[in-house]
Amino acid sequence: MKKWLKIILVLFLISLIGISVYKVLDINKFQTKEQFKEQQGKKSFQNSHPATGLNVNDETVKKFTTQKATNLKEVTSKNDITIINLFASWCDPCKREMPELVKYAKNKENGVELIGLNVKDKRKSAEQLINDVNVNYNVYIAEDDFLKKFKSYNIPTTLFVDKNGKIKKVYLGELSEKTLNNLVTQVKEEN
């Protein structure tokens, strides 16, 4: 009886190990970081973000370099799509995505504008980050209540805004250049 019990236990353990290995291999569909980035933007947006449908045009922001106040309407009205990337220098995912945003800004389509919107940050730290990455797109500073108004409690968050200032889509998390291209295509197709 003990011998049969040992055999059954060994077979059970072998089966359990086999199933575990299969599950790990099945779950790991994205074998490299590049493959993961490639797949990332193919997923559709979540349309349930509370900021979707709100309008940013009346929001006053300051140009980072000059500290001159301006309404976002001055930016959004010039473009079919304005991509507003909310970031801070203390946010590690923001730091990781900025070089990807720089690549995107070099090759962006006509009618699409990318801007950075610095939130809840110290000017000196933000300036250092912007210089270190050699940011090639316009950066603004948001008013303190911007995140609360647009229910954006996590950063990085990226808003996709139409010519009238209406937020069409919201993307939470870190972006790659390829993901950003895929998301812009989705916004265009849905409008």
Rank of each mutant, 00 (worst) to 15 (best):
M1C: 11
K3C: 10
W4G: 12
L5F: 12
L5S: 12
L5Y: 12
I7E: 06
I14N: 14
I14Q: 14
L16I: 15
I17S: 14
G18D: 10
I19E: 15
Y22A: 15
I27A: 14
Q31V: 09
T32G: 00
K33F: 02
E38P: 05
E38M: 08
Q39S: 14
S44G: 13
Q46Y: 10
N47E: 10
N47Y: 10
S48A: 10
S48N: 13
A51F: 05
A51T: 04
G53E: 04
V56T: 11
V61H: 01
V61D: 03
V61L: 12
K62E: 15
F64T: 03
T65G: 04
T66M: 03
Q67F: 15
K68H: 12
K68E: 15
A69H: 11
T70C: 05
N71V: 11
K73E: 14
S77H: 11
S77N: 08
S77R: 10
K78Y: 06
K78Q: 13
N79F: 05
N79C: 07
T82I: 06
I83G: 00
I84M: 02
N85T: 06
N85C: 04
N85K: 03
F87A: 00
A88I: 07
W90Q: 02
C91E: 01
P93H: 04
C94R: 01
K95F: 06
E97F: 02
P99W: 05
E100A: 07
L101Q: 03
L101D: 00
Y104W: 03
Y104N: 02
K106R: 13
N107L: 13
N107D: 11
K108I: 14
E109W: 06
G111W: 01
G111V: 01
G111K: 03
E113S: 12
E113I: 07
L114M: 05
I115C: 01
I115L: 02
V119S: 00
K124H: 09
S125I: 08
A126E: 09
E127I: 10
E127Q: 10
E127S: 11
Q128C: 06
Q128A: 08
I130S: 00
D132P: 02
D132C: 03
N134T: 09
N134W: 10
N136F: 14
Y137H: 02
V139K: 00
Y140I: 04
Y140H: 03
A142N: 06
A142W: 07
E143Q: 15
D144V: 15
D145C: 14
D145L: 13
F150P: 01
K151I: 12
S152V: 10
S152Q: 03
I155P: 00
P156C: 02
T157W: 00
T158S: 06
L159Q: 08
F160Y: 07
V161T: 11
K163L: 06
G165P: 07
G165T: 07
G165F: 07
K166I: 09
I167C: 04
I167K: 09
K169L: 05
Y171V: 10
L172R: 09
G173H: 07
G173W: 07
L175V: 05
K178F: 00
K178N: 02
T179D: 12
T179Y: 04
T179G: 14
L180I: 01
L180C: 02
N182F: 01
L183D: 00
V184P: 01
V184I: 08
V187H: 00
N191V: 10
